[in-house]
């Protein structure tokens, strides 16, 4: 909440990719692979987004909720913290943190509407209990900085703030939440990577502008590569594979 990212808990708690990619031992015992782990988190990101569209909260709330969910799984197992409950609860908590509180009963209503599957069915009481467990798991650090904030400034500065560039970049940023980038990189670098991708796609020459910025272009390019890799592999993420991964969580080791 402090406006200064560099003094924030978010900055102090940025993780290395290896730490984010550690599958919890409890989940490992159940046969969950790193691939499964990523797949489930991506699926839950989509779940949060769909739910958010139903209850009509803004993208920032979605982004905060997804960040909470991803932070939780750097510390807790999916076996103990069912993603199908953690995802809606993170949206619930984020809506409070971002000052657009959504009622728990409304979430429960839309969960039932979105998923007929009993495994997704949770009641108000479950959400309220999980809310406290998530607060604990997050160690009460709730402030999250997002790439959206720096985006418009950057685009304006680079004279790229036309509608088509803005929309494309915004969309790419939304997609980055399907990955763990927000846990690893400062948000402004994620924003720059998204601008880089969008400008290449729209064939805008931004070389000079990027050179003037005092940022490590290697990091920006690496983030861009990760995003492009994700788009590449995204096509192979089928419903079946997600369900198989989720099923492993219920297996006894």
């Amino acid at each position: 909440m402090s406006a200064n990212f560099w003094t924030s808990s978010h900055y102090k708690h940025l993780l290395d990719q290896e730490d984010v990619d550690m599958v919890n031992p409890l989940d490992k015992e159940r046969g969950v692979t790193l691939e499964d782990f990523k797949l489930i988190k991506m699926h839950m990101t989509n779940y949060i987004l769909r739910l958010a569209q139903q209850v009509k909260v803004r993208q920032r709330v979605v982004a905060t909720a997804v960040t909470y969910m991803r932070r939780v799984y750097t510390r807790k197992s999916m076996a103990e913290y069912d993603p199908r409950l953690v995802a809606p609860t993170c949206l619930y908590l984020a809506s409070k943190a971002e000052e657009s509180t959504v009622q728990a009963r409304l979430l429960v209503f839309y969960i039932k509407k979105l998923y007929a599957d009993d495994k997704y069915r949770y009641e108000i009481k479950d959400i309220l209990e999980m809310e406290m467990k998530i607060l604990e798991a997050l160690d009460y650090y709730l402030v999250v900085f997002h790439p959206y904030r720096s985006l418009s400034q950057f685009l304006q500065d680079a004279s790229l703030n036309d509608l088509s560039m803005t929309q494309l970049t915004w969309g790419v940023i939304n997609d980055t939440y399907k990955m763990d980038l927000i846990l690893v990189h400062p948000p402004h670098l994620i924003a720059l990577a998204c601008i880089y991708i969008a400008s290449v796609f729209r064939e805008k020459d931004t070389t000079a502008w990027f050179e003037e910025l005092r940022v490590d272009m290697n990091v920006v390019k690496n983030i861009s590569m990760e995003i492009l890799d994700f788009y590449e592999s995204n096509r192979m993420f089928t419903e079946d594979r997600i369900n198989t991964a989720l099923q492993k969580l219920t297996l006894r080791p």
């Binding site: 619930y92 409070k96 959400i127 309220l128 009460y140 402030v143």
Partner: peptide, 16 residues
Amino acid sequence: DGVSPTAIREIMLLRE
């Protein structure tokens, strides 16, 4: 409706 938003915001700020 769970933890009061007031408490959430107070914790959120004080933690930073």
